[in-house]
Amino acid sequence: MTVHVVLAWLASAVAAGTPLVFAAVGEIVAERGGVFNLGVEGMMLVGAVSGFIVAVHTRDLALAIAVAMGAAAAVALLLAVLTITLGADQAVTGLTLTLFGAGLSSFLGKPYIGIPSPVVFRPVPLPVLGDVPGLGPVLFQQNLLVYASYLLVPAVWAALSHTRPGLALRAAGEDAATADALGLNVAALRYTGVLTGGALAGLAGAYLSLAYTPAWTDNMTSGQGWIAIALVIFATWNPLRAAAGAYLFGGVEALGFRIQAVGGTTPSYFLRMLPYLFTLGVLLVVTMRSRRPGVPGNLGRPYFREERYG
């Protein structure tokens, strides 16, 4: 009985943590390239609404995911042009991108509030793996997007640390002037990072509207984009640690629902505060231990070649 409850909780931790995995890993790619994208929340909302709309009209989940990723990447392109090409302040541009994404998704999603999606991602238990006691129900009786995240995390980690383009992206984020002098195309690398981050944020949004809580509501991400950004700091820009952190946060979020489900007396508002408070607490502990743990050296700094001379 208790084991069953714990397993169910762990399974819902994975399910709740998956959008954070996508969004945080995407943000890591952007930040490793040197661009601090505070627009994650907005990009997630755009992904959520566009994926939902396409699913309603076409009943094609693959197309819905593709459109969600493309739409969020298109919004990220706005930030990329403003901050990389035009050198605008990354923080204010990212914050505004969130406002823009919230407005755009609310505008487009208005007619879709309250209607169910005709198609959703349902759990697909994997043969053999899904039957492994303990591990199976937690990890391998999930939907396809969750399985995709299992592949994505090690893939992004390996790409960043063991491939030539990954090395180039890190160099652009640590020291853009140096990367440029060595013949790397800093702008192209940073665009790639930001657009990848945008596409993954879109995927995170579509996961919410098509798998986790399949429906469209205004501001349905409720701050998960911000939690993902905090997670990046917690993970010291490492995708593997980000995934572990995401499931931890998912566990905290799921805990609230579990307590409500078993009839706890704590008002739900306090339980819903948990993920934010937990994020804050973790952020404090991480920064207390070391002031700048693993921050890419040029994070947040625009780069222009001809700015210095002598």
């Binding site: 030539r164 090395l167 180039a168 890190r170 160099a171 640590e174 020291d175 002037a177 140096t178 990367a179 002098a181 060595l182 013949g183 790397l184 050296g297």
Partner: peptide, 15 residues
């Protein structure tokens, strides 16, 4: 033109 957090050989591979 060296990236301090990277190793010597990583720096030499850049570009």
């Amino acid at each position: 033109k060296l990236v301090p957090p990277l190793t010597v050989h990583e720096n030499l591979l850049l570009g």
